[in-house]
Amino acid sequence: MIKDEDILNIDAPQLSASERLYLPQILGGMKTTLQHMGNTLLGGKSVTVQYPEEKRPMRMDNYRGVHRLNKDEDGRVACVACFMCSTACPAHCIHITAGESPWPDREKYPVKFDIDELRCIYCGMCEQACPVDAIELTYEYDLVGRTREEMILDKEELLSIYDETSHVKHRKNPRITGYPNTGDRKQVEGGPIAKAVKHAEEGDTA
């Protein structure tokens, strides 16, 4: 309960005579408008842009626009289908179906990966939750569609957004869960430590 003594009553400040005229404020406003008008007419520098033909420059790295699914070095989907993003998603807009991966270095991958862009609130929690930096929000904001179904992006679409945006915004920190240096133990010549030492010795002399 709020107590009476906690409430602070503030009276509106009295305006002076000049302030009551409002003229200085009006003139100040007019000055800005005229300045821009002058710039446009004389300097040819426009403030508005002809969207969508023209686009305003923006900070690519932290704008939270449409999602993309990153690819790893071999062009495969980087996602390991851990469901962290869909777990973290407050809008429940990510739907994943996992399956056994066809690749030897990973065991799980998303067979289906759908994001309902209309439900999404672009909070970026999925990006935060991803352990392999596979899902990222891009700077793309002009997402349009004619139906609701069209606005549910599937895996292929999300991967194609990566292709379109990766040259501008690189994948943050490619990591992969599990097994960085894999290999059959029997194929390794000598022990791994001996091998590593040999490798380092080559480095020492070089």
């Binding site: 390991v80 851990c82 990973r106 799980k108 869960t177 599990g178 097994y179």
Partner: peptide, 12 residues
């Protein structure tokens, strides 16, 4: 000790 050789692949 338990986690020494554990792959820590909880996400998958």
């Amino acid at each position: 000790f338990f986690l020494l050789n554990h792959p820590l692949d909880c996400p998958v």
